Simulated scan of single mutants.
Amino acid sequence: MTLNFTDTSMVDAEQSRWYAVDDGVMGGVSRSGFRVEKGLGCFCGEVSLENGGGFASVRREPDGFEQTLAHGQGIALRVRGDGRTYQLRLKNSALDEASAYRVVFTPKAHQWETLHVTWAQFEAVRRGTLLSSAPPLDPRTVHQLGFLIADRTAGPFRLEVAFIAPYEQDLHSQG
């Protein structure tokens, strides 16, 4: 199963699954959102460093898609960025609510790229600090996915997502 944004009958349902968790939880004023437009998912907004802030994130409400990811060797995602650094974040039952497994990526500005991330590439973090004692990510326990930007750079950002899917090892060479 692939999460893509091209089915026009599902646009409202998919868009409503995503919600922002920005630095306002700690007094910051960054803002973000996730919208579905023209067959793409778009994580966009503006990062502000005011009031000790500096991050924006979105999370997707679970609907069973997360469990399909475990059928692959990792995750494939097709993205077009703006040259800024992002994180793909996964939550599971092994970590507390303030923690997640992440992989950091910096897509080239204005170019589509297909990234292939193995489960072993994900690292456990809590508020940006690595959790060295956390167990490796078990993809069978993933219950939420999301994106985060925390690159200590103020200003607008835009990450477009064409699809998110499990990938098998033989797809690793495709780009």
Rank of each mutant, 00 (worst) to 15 (best):
L115F: 13
A120M: 06
F43S: 04
F65S: 10
G33Q: 14
F65G: 07
A154R: 13
S57R: 04
F5C: 10
D23R: 01
G39Y: 12
Q111G: 00
Q144Y: 03
H116V: 06
Q67W: 05
R78W: 09
Y101M: 08
G53A: 05
R78L: 06
W18M: 05
T8Y: 00
L88P: 01
A165N: 09
L115G: 01
V58R: 00
H143L: 03
D7C: 09
Q121W: 06
V36Q: 02
T129Y: 08
G54K: 02
G45A: 10
N4M: 03
V29A: 01
D138N: 15
F157C: 03
E14S: 00
W119E: 01
S132M: 10
S133A: 15
S30F: 10
R140G: 06
G45P: 05
L148S: 02
P107T: 09
V125R: 00
A150E: 11
L69C: 06
C42H: 03
S132F: 14
T106P: 06
F163M: 08
V25N: 01
H71N: 08
L95G: 12
L130F: 14
V104K: 05
E46V: 01
P107A: 07
G53E: 05
V125D: 00
G52C: 09
I75S: 02
T8C: 00
H143Y: 13
H110T: 11
N92G: 13
S57F: 07
V104Y: 02
S9F: 15
H143F: 14
A120T: 14
R89Q: 13
I75F: 12
S32M: 10
D138I: 03
G74T: 04
G83S: 08
A120I: 03
R35G: 08
R126F: 00
A56P: 05
A165K: 15
M1D: 08
A70W: 14
G33L: 12
A165L: 07
G27F: 08
Q67L: 09
L148G: 00
R127T: 08
T85H: 12
V25R: 01
V104P: 00
A154K: 14
R59A: 09
A98M: 15
H172R: 03
F105W: 13
F122K: 03
Q144N: 05
F34I: 07
T114D: 04
L130N: 06
L131A: 09
V11L: 05
V117C: 07
D12L: 14
